[in-house]
Amino acid sequence: MTQVDTGMSRAVREVRSTPPIWRQWNLVWNFAQRDLKSKFKGSALGWAWSLVVPLATLAIYTVVFSVVFRMPPPQMGSGRDGLFVIWLFAGLTAWTFFASSINAGISGLIGTGALLKKIFFPAYAPVLGAMVAQGVQSLIELGLYLCVLLVLGNLGWTWLLVPFWAVLLVLFTSGLATALAVLNVHTRDLAHLVAVFLQLGFYATPIIYTLDYVPAERWGLPLRAMVEWSPISLFVETLRDLTYGLEVGSGTAWLGMAAWAAASLALGAWVHRRRGGDLGEEL
């Protein structure tokens, strides 16, 4: 060992090696597997739960909304009379993916804190891992939903656009989840605030009601337009258009989703770069 003598060629790189995000898939996927495996380990039914729970949800909503509330559902794309439960399930699937990913990302990063204190890896990895785990669950629900539509004979070529829709939703969710999870490490009460806003978001999105129920204007605010162009509404409505109504959806809706996704990604990347580097000290 010597004291540093200048003039030596510099060693190649900083300690923190951060391969680009697409090279980190293995790490993200391992976190996702951890979440998925630990979710059902030790339960007798195991993976069956990921099917049982959405089926039970569907059954409950069937009872509630065909007996108690009797919401008039929009007509299906095939011309068949609408089924409110199916219509509702589409909205719930999209919403649940978003909301659960945000929550799981926040708690996932905190839960990985012990690890981040010992070894460096990008903070978004456990967040995205949690989202991927939630995504697997949501795919099962989406498959269930499409199966029901298939049985009802409501099938169209617009289904082929669902993957594109899913990509935009995943991008939108990952940006926001990363930003919130990282900020929550610095300011812990963000998690509580997020819970409140998610509840608000649930009712501010046409999930259990159709957009027509929202007054066009109230308190001097263009309430219906605000609801319509809120990000989750766009995603929820577009999924219904593609699968339930068998329509492509408006170009502006697709543009809107792309814009929200881009904005969310930019926010996530910015927060991660600014505040994501010192989590080992903050956790």
Binding site: R13, S17, K117, F120, D278, G280
Partner: peptide
């Protein structure tokens, strides 16, 4: 190990 970032100076590996 990369867990902390230096306040100043650098570690190169």
């Amino acid at each position: 190990a990369g867990v902390y970032r230096p306040t100043s100076g650098a570690v190169l590996v």
